[in-house]
């Protein structure tokens, strides 16, 4: 279950060592924008060591690496991949070839360290106009890509427009990303809401992203995590319905019926699949938090 992804600066031990208690489903240990060029080496070694020596409970680890037009990305992968983070987040990904380059290098590292190929997955950060236009190709580029993430800040700079709270300027990119990811059968994550003190704004922005089809949302502040989790969790109604679906299937089987209807609507494959997802998410939430808020 990955609803929220929380950015933590990769060179700040105090933030990293407590990363798994902030309620986020994933943490993104950032080697890119949060780290100045002079400290890239320090952050890389620090992140590598924390992955080596600390346990992160109930929390997926994503490491954001520097983009392939920098001198850092290979060193980043060399240090980090052997520690088997769940995901690597490559940055400024503009086309499928970017991912293929990274994929090939990761395969080399995995081989060198006796790891199975494709142990570490990818969640490309799409933050250029070119990346948005190539989103589907990127999503389909290799099996490593299991999700995509839209970065609104850099994108708006590339689009020559201003980033606003309402976000009309990225509405095309959002929809395009969702469509591309869903067509490729992978998850898709929305850009962070950057006003840390706007408690109402984060909720509105989450609800918008959810309504567009995003799986979840990234955050730059621990304060936003609980709202993101709440919005991207199934509702009580969703859960009740999902259980009803399986109850109806069971009853139909007992009665030997082929077609199954619930509340006058035929239950087809997508409905069953959706119900299955809702229940599995609900069970995970119950395990972690005891139930929905």
């Amino acid at each position: 279950m990955r609803r929220s992804m929380l950015f933590l600066p990769g060179n700040n031990p105090n933030m990293i060592i407590n990363g798994d208690v902030l309620g986020s489903d994933s943490v993104i240990l950032d080697l890119e924008d949060a780290v100045s060029p002079a400290e890239k080496d320090a952050a890389r070694i620090l992140v590598r060591n924390t992955l080596k020596y600390l346990k992160f409970e109930n929390c997926e680890i994503i490491v954001r690496i520097n983009s392939i037009d920098t001198e850092y990305w290979k060193d980043d992968l060399d240090e980090i991949v052997p520690l088997k983070p769940d995901l690597i987040m490559p940055t400024k990904v503009s086309c499928a070839d970017d991912i293929r380059t990274i994929d090939a290098y990761m395969s080399e590292i995995e081989k060198k360290h006796g790891m199975e190929n494709n142990t570490v997955h990818l969640i490309p950060l799409i933050e250029t106009a070119m990346g948005v236009e190539n989103a589907f190709e990127i999503a389909k580029s290799t099996d490593r890509v299991v999700a995509m993430f839209l970065g609104g800040e850099d994108l708006t700079a590339d689009l020559h427009c201003k980033r606003t709270k309402v976000g009309n300027e990225i509405s095309y990119a959002r929809s395009r990303m969702v469509s591309a990811a869903r067509a490729a059968g992978i998850d898709v994550y929305d850009t962070p809401f950057t006003d840390v003190n706007d408690d109402e704004g984060i909720r509105v922005d989450c609800e918008l992203a959810k309504s567009l089809g995003f799986t979840g949302k990234a955050s730059i502040s621990p304060r936003h995590v609980s709202v993101i989790n709440e919005v991207f969790s199934p509702s009580h109604k969703d859960v009740d319905y999902a259980y009803e679906v399986f109850e109806a299937i069971k009853t139909a089987k007992e009665l030997g019926k082929g077609a199954i209807a619930l509340h006058g609507k035929m239950i087809d494959k997508p409905i069953v699949e959706r119900a299955r997802q809702v229940i599995s998410m609900y069970e995970e939430i119950v395990r972690r938090n005891g139930g929905l808020d």
Binding site: I17, A42, I45, Y53, L54
Partner: peptide, 17 residues
């Protein structure tokens, strides 16, 4: 008050530099 893994990382960084 750094953890052991942080001390290790910082010393390795300093030595590499």
């Amino acid at each position: 008050g750094a953890l052991d893994c942080v001390i290790r990382a910082r010393l390795e960084t300093a030595l590499r530099r």
